[in-house]
């Protein structure tokens, strides 16, 4: 303490100079608009540079994985090149057949009851167990998704519509493959919400959302809707997005019930993980 005091007394000119200079600089930065913006933007520039260096280093360490992926992709593409093929015209047909087994079957059904104004909306279809409909089958229309079969009787079945407050369906951007989940918040039957899209994802209003196969219910790439509007919220890390549903629930008449022929196989396989 005594040494500190001696130091202060001895060096008081420099210390006073530094102190007053700090006062001046803080005055400059806080009261002069252009200087303030320069100060903030240059410190931002320094940080941005640090981050980009950091990212560049990260990319370098990822090179091994990226190389591996590229090599894999190359070999796959090479295999498809015409020069790596032998002409076996006779058996080509059968090969093609095994490649494209039927994955999804579609049964047409008519909507005989429908609601859109409640918070839990259901539809009733004129097909049932007798026609091969089972619970958890997807229901789609020619313009987009409709819902999922919940209960089945001999001749009828009920469908939990997308317009059901507890219904969630996985969706992805058609152009970028980023996925989130669609849910209905109970107000407008044409508008749903898309959640879990983080801030770094780039998209525009009007971008198309389609189904993916995560749910093991819907076939992939079935239209869900388009982005109506989006905004950033302060309290979490995800966009809040409004989606214009492509299905017109108000005048649904004919729908398709989708049967996934490989559903059990996938469920059994995935059950092994649990």
């Amino acid at each position: 303490m005594r040494n500190l005091l001696i130091f202060i007394v001895k060096q008081h000119v420099i210390l006073l100079f530094l102190l007053l200079q700090i006062v001046c600089i803080s005055l400059i930065v806080s009261f002069n608009e252009p200087q303030k913006t320069h100060f903030i933007s240059s410190s931002n520039a320094i940080f941005a540079r640090m981050f980009s260096v950091n990212q560049a280093i990260g990319q370098y360490f990822n090179l091994a994985t990226i190389n591996e992926q590229l090599a894999e992709e190359n070999s796959r593409l090479l295999k498809n090149q015409i020069f790596s093929r032998i002409d076996t015209s006779r058996i080509e047909q059968t090969i093609n057949d095994t490649i494209t087994n039927v994955h999804y079957e579609y049964m047409v059904a008519r909507v005989i009851n429908n609601s859109i104004h409640r918070t839990h909306n259901y539809l009733t279809l004129n097909k049932g167990k007798k026609h091969g409909i089972l619970p958890n089958m997807a229901v789609i229309s020619s313009s987009g998704i409709v819902g999922v079969v919940t209960n089945v009787s001999e001749h009828f079945s009920t469908v939990m519509s997308v317009l059901h407050a507890q219904y969630k369906v996985s969706a992805k951007f058609k152009n970028s493959n980023y996925f989130g989940s669609i849910y209905w918040n109970g107000n407008d039957y044409r508008i749903a919400s898309l959640a879990e899209i983080p801030f770094h994802v780039k998209f525009n209003t009007g971008d198309t959302l389609v189904t993916n196969e995560f749910s093991n219910i819907y076939p992939p790439n079935i239209m869900i809707g388009t982005i109506e509007s989006f905004n950033k919220t302060d309290f979490d890390n995800f966009y809040s997005i409004k989606v214009n549903l492509s299905t017109e629930f108000k005048n649904l008449e004919f729908v398709y019930v989708v049967k996934n022929l490989y559903k059990e196989e996938r469920e059994q396989l995935e059950a092994l993980q649990k």
């Binding site: 100079f17 007053l20 400059i28």
Partner: peptide
């Protein structure tokens, strides 16, 4: 504020 003071200091 501060612009001239810093230089005169």
């Amino acid at each position: 504020p501060g612009v001239h003071a810093s230089a005169t200091l």
